[in-house]
Amino acid sequence: MARDSNQPRKFVEEEVLPVINDYWERAEVPLDLGRRLGELGLVGDGLSGYGCPPMSKTAAGLIAMELNRGDGSLGTFLGVQGGLAMRSIHMHGSEEQKQRWLPAMARCEKLGAFALTEPRHGSDSVSLETEARREGDEYVINGAKRWIGNGSLADVVVLWARDVEDMQVKGFLIEKGTPGYDGRAIPGKGALRALWQADIDLTDVRIPVQNRLPRANSFADTAKVLKATRASCAWSALGHAVAGYDAALNYTSQRTQFGKPLARFQIVQEKLVRMLCSITAMQLYCLRIGELDDTDELSDTIAALGKLNNTVKAKEVLSEARNLLGGNGILLENHVIRHFTDIEAIYTFEGTESIQTLLVGRDITGFSAFT
């Protein structure tokens, strides 16, 4: 982790919060802030070697929490870069691929993306239709992807496609500027506005055989990456909830109505206490997830349970925070409405609340509701 354990919080307080509302309102990516993450040694998601800053999985979770406390777009930028793109290469790539990409990505000199979701396959990602066909020393890829963070600007895209030879899902690296790759930022988003998520069309995209991830040979290998990022979503949701709670506590302590601060009213105190109860439970989920992840004991079920609980609770906390700020709760300057809308995206990606419920339900009952 960074030498100063308070560095992520200082970065958020001093560099992110003063400017992020303008980026969010303009729907512009704060690339300078993204690059700063690499300069500060905050990118790596607990991966080892290859220029990744040394940190435990718990430390990586705390960094994700702090960045999302500042802004969900920046937190998701980190999740895409370290948790998805870098982790895929670190887990499934060749030694040459790791040496080429990971050190530069850890410094945020090169940006990555993770292309799994498709227009016709969101939750049902295992049924993806993008195809890769080997022709001599190349793979030819055709298909489409949607909701791909950094997909319109990444230097390398980790793309998941079905190999027509054996119909297994495999991973491929597509480099910036490859002919046939067309990534366009999706307009009109009401959440994570300071992150560009792309629609991608792939038309006869040709890549060398060396650009296939050699250890990614089925969707089960893709799922290994997703398990880790579900855990990260629990930390991210905690960051959003803490931001909402802090804003509500500060506002109600200063805002005077009926001759006294709002925080002196019993009903306001009751709401704040319930918010704190939820946040404390979310913290305990995250700490346990971190402990299990650090010892390689984190199961798919626990990761899903943590993501499910924390995103649901974060939505409740942020709804109450917006309520406590009254009409002022919809103003960006009060740092609630941005988190209120951003949590909707985190609630959905990496598997919706319903999908996480079915993953846990399958484990506790022994019956799969997916088939």
Score class of each variant (00 low, 15 high):
F11I: 14
F11V: 15
E13W: 01
E15H: 15
I20M: 06
E25W: 07
E25Y: 04
V29M: 15
L33I: 11
G38E: 08
E39M: 08
G46W: 05
Y50I: 12
P54Y: 13
L62W: 09
L62I: 11
R69W: 07
G72A: 01
S73I: 01
T76I: 00
L78K: 14
G83I: 12
G83Q: 15
H90R: 15
E95I: 06
W101C: 08
L102G: 01
L102P: 02
P103N: 08
R107V: 03
F114W: 13
A115V: 10
E118D: 15
G122F: 13
E129A: 09
E138D: 11
V140N: 03
I148E: 00
V157R: 00
W160C: 02
W160R: 13
E175T: 10
T178G: 05
Q210T: 14
Q210K: 08
P214A: 10
R215N: 10
A228V: 04
R230E: 04
G239T: 10
A241V: 04
G244Q: 09
A248M: 05
G259K: 12
A263S: 14
R264Q: 09
V273D: 10
V273Y: 04
R274W: 05
S278L: 13
M282C: 08
R288F: 09
E291I: 05
E297S: 08
E297C: 09
S299C: 09
S299R: 08
D300E: 14
I302G: 00
L305S: 15
G306K: 07
G306N: 06
K307P: 01
L308M: 06
N309S: 06
T311N: 08
K313I: 10
R322P: 00
L332R: 14
I343W: 07
D363M: 14
T365I: 01
